[in-house]
Design a protein around this nucleic acid. Structure first.
Lengths: 133, 133
DNA sequence: AGTGATAATAGGAACTATTACTATTTATAG
DNA sequence: CTATAAATAGTAATAGTTCCTATTATCACT
């Protein structure tokens, strides 16, 4: 990531527009105005941006990973039916997270570099539309 | 899961023996004494057992999912280098988890059915052996 | 502006974890 | 013992992601 590229610029723009999109969703969106962008380019840029902590990767156990342009400390809730992601700011104060990290390091000897704190359930819309079972 | 099977019995035995194994690790282990077991059978049984809450699925963002025979409420720390999983009992008391769920439901309208609270870092052994970078 | 070094891309092949399919085997109720 | 249908083995198929390579684009230095 030493050089600028039109593609990376479009990826950042799309990421901010789309609300926790997947790589494929970003790719589809960009193709509308720049049809020759490659899916591999989207994946590579998202991974590099996440590695550089410029964006956040939201790992998903079932479907595809999603991405978040907002790197302020916050957690997420995932709808298991439609995949939508909800932001949770200020749920766990910073001091609480720090003390959890410390407890983990004492119990396991593992030096914590990141946490994965997310909630799963069925969102209001999916519950209303009975999009499940 | 209405009928007993030799294969499911071996899967449970291997799961308890192996310390948070993946489906492939269980398959490899069982093949030693029962070579004709199919990997599909291992996956199907693990999924059914997890759906029935008899065992726990530990989703992994990078590699393969791991499984835990102990369904008591506890969280996990994952070494990002070797994949080893450490148990964390009593880190977050039940009441804390319940109140987090409640806060999430109030903020998002999503009805929480499960949480994913795990920590990532480099374990003592990998740090010592410099198995990284 | 021109040029050389090399970073980044497009497009497709390859890979990994997992699920689906189907003919065969096996468990178990009666 | 036998009929029914659950479970399996083996393989094909799928989804998400990474890898590979020839080509294109960026940018530091003229």
């Amino acid at each position: 990531m030493k050089r600028h590229s039109k593609q990376r610029e479009l990826i950042m723009k799309s990421l901010k527009k789309l609300d926790h999109p997947t790589a494929a969703e970003i790719h589809d969106d960009i193709k509308l105005e720049y049809p020759k962008i490659s899916l591999g380019t989207v994946y590579r840029n998202l991974s590099e941006l996440a590695d550089s902590k410029i964006i956040l990767r939201l790992p998903s156990s079932d479907g595809a990973d999603r991405f978040d342009w907002n790197t302020d400390e916050h957690f997420h809730a995932h709808c298991t039916v439609c995949g939508k992601v909800f932001d949770l700011f200020g749920l766990l104060p910073r001091e609480a997270v720090d003390s959890l990290d410390k407890a983990v390091e004492e119990h396991t000897g593992l030096s914590v570099s990141s946490r994965e704190i997310s909630f799963k359930g069925i969102c209001k819309d999916c519950a209303k539309n009975k999009n499940f079972q």
